[in-house]
Design a protein around this nucleic acid. Structure first.
Lengths: 335, 335
DNA sequence: GTGAAAGCGCTAACAG
DNA sequence: CTGTTAGCGCTTTCAC
């Protein structure tokens, strides 16, 4: 059973492929095709279950109706929640979603973007970028593909952004710890450290500490590698134990890291950290379930997805590709 | 800057498009092109950064190099972990991943499959299906697209499956509760109830209860709707409270449901369930962190992804499309 | 060893 | 209002 094509419809109806194509693409009125003819064409196409060949269509129009989503780790609930929302919104607009993870690897991000733009021909891209500078994205060969950057700012890169206030968020999280009388507040950052989110959160942390009249102690700021989180957190905890400087609170820079930390603290080996207060960027269900009160900052994943898709669709609909930044509100959840 | 195409290479090198295309597609030897010529073509293509136009290629060959992944909810860690693995494996083989969620909606699944196969022209499909019967998938128009079904069996459908032993898993989980002296073991199932996973788990539950010489009490088996989990769990808990028949254990049929249940039990409103033992299908990090010991059954997400991709790739490589079932081992985690 | 030419199925000038 | 026609960029048969 060969797939039905325009030619078959043409013979069936006695109209030319052109006319049928125009009607099917909603340009019937524009070309002044009579309502009656249009209805007939539409009905027949539906009845015979015609679907255009996407390859041919794409070859001709240069549009793929695919949107790429590039994040560090699609299994991170932060990103998978965004992905779910994005997919569902795109579907409504007739677009499909292609997802890839970079594992925080810069080369892989470049590879993926290049692949999506130059090989797959995606019509647009939503990216949480790990790159340290704008050079790559400023290359001419990407200038035609609309991109929306979410979550993270690529330094110096003028682009469409959908962000949250990482600095302010960190500030309120750490303030919360200070309000609970913590004096020695450690900070577990996550590499790569150059990420705008991480930088801003670190700055928020420092500012909050300073505001409280406490000296920022670099020894309290530890960085954990994305690819070896458990090992690194263990090492840092051990280091604290060895120097006998157990902090009274830890400010954790993302959900994944918090999970690893909480898991370790549960073991008797690290039980000395049991009473350490924790504040964490991102809110996850876990925090509603454990007894330990973890103050967190909920990011609006659904809204991030929505705004990103809206921006992309607006651009694809022909509106000028602007370079604005949307900063969405977060919610501090005190526990 | 127009994108480089075969014609440009042809002019640059003085060879025909045919020759270049053959070499670039690895058919140089087959057509007896001299090594030297091949090397020259390959080098030049790499140097000029040539990438073929995928639309044209697809139109010509009928292959999209896209694989579709359809699951109920891509934000569920079970599926997003599989997705991550699948994406990374496919990428190595030159394929890309398209992800969609059905929200357990049968019509949406049909729509998505149809879209992927008949409009997007994916080369293969990995599906965790919500359908109640095989009719849809037996339709001729799908017969050419290789599919691998994961996680759930579509009743009566002969196909490639990658599964785990849901019956056995439920059996050992409930046995674990019985070993802990539980007598009144409730079961929270999740709709749609017709899913093979749910059915098998329920049967395992019943069998374990019977093996222990306990009468299966239908009143203890409650079903929670996927789309209104919190409300339904609350309602069931309240129902138990009203009839004053607080179970001494609850067997929970998936991770998401466990999260909702644990969260509610934490609130004072439902504190009477505080000491209820819990065993849960799926293992999540949460269980390593909370104080309440939750026995769980870890599913091999990475292996599921790997086997599914292997099967698909084997089929695409020309091997006969067999209809075998792989049942992967799970791990009981006693807590 | 190599090239000419046909055509995958669609869209959009352009012509009437 | 409607149809003819020329490609989009690639692969592949066939011919030399």
């Amino acid at each position: 059973m060969r797939k039905l094509q325009l030619d078959d419809l043409s013979k069936e109806l006695g109209y030319s492929k052109t006319l049928i194509s125009m009607v099917l693409n909603g340009k019937g009125n524009q070309y002044g095709i009579s309502k009656k003819t249009q209805a007939l064409v539409l009905d027949t196409a539906a009845r015979l279950n015609y679907t255009p060949n996407k390859f041919a269509k794409s070859l001709r129009t240069g549009k793929s109706y695919f949107i790429g989503l590039i994040v560090s780790d699609i299994s991170n609930p932060f990103y998978s929640t965004i992905a779910k929302r994005v997919e569902s919104l795109l579907f409504e607009s007739g677009y499909n979603l292609m997802v890839c993870s970079t594992d925080e690897n810069e080369e892989r991000e470049k590879l993926l973007v290049d692949m999506m733009v130059n090989q797959q021909g995606v019509d647009g891209l939503i990216i949480s970028s790990v790159l340290q500078n704008a050079e790559f994205y400023e290359h001419a060969r990407f200038s035609k593909t609309p991109m929306v950057f979410i979550d993270r700012v690529v330094p110096l890169h003028k682009a469409n952004y959908v962000l949250i206030d990482n600095y302010g968020g960190a500030l309120s999280l750490v303030n919360q710890l200070i309000k609970q009388n913590c004096k020695k507040i450690a900070c577990f950052a996550i590499t790569p450290l150059h990420l705008s989110t991480i930088e801003d959160r670190l700055n928020g942390y420092r500012k909050a500490i300073q505001n409280a009249g406490i000296q920022v102690d670099p020894a309290l700021i530890r960085s954990i590698r994305f690819m070896s989180m458990t090992e690194d957190v263990e090492q840092e905890l051990r280091a604290f134990m060895e120097t006998k400087t157990i902090p009274d609170a830890i400010f954790v820079l993302n959900n994944h890291l918090a999970v690893v930390l909480l898991k370790l603290i549960k073991t008797k080996q690290y039980s000395v950290f049991e009473n350490v207060k924790i504040a964490c960027f991102d809110d996850i269900e876990l925090f509603n379930i454990i007894d330990k009160p973890v103050t967190s900052l909920a990011q609006p994943m659904d809204a991030i997805g929505k705004v990103a898709v809206d921006k992309l669709m607006a651009t694809l609909a022909g509106n000028q590709l602007t370079t604005s930044s949307e900063v969405l509100p977060t919610q501090l959840i005190e526990r």
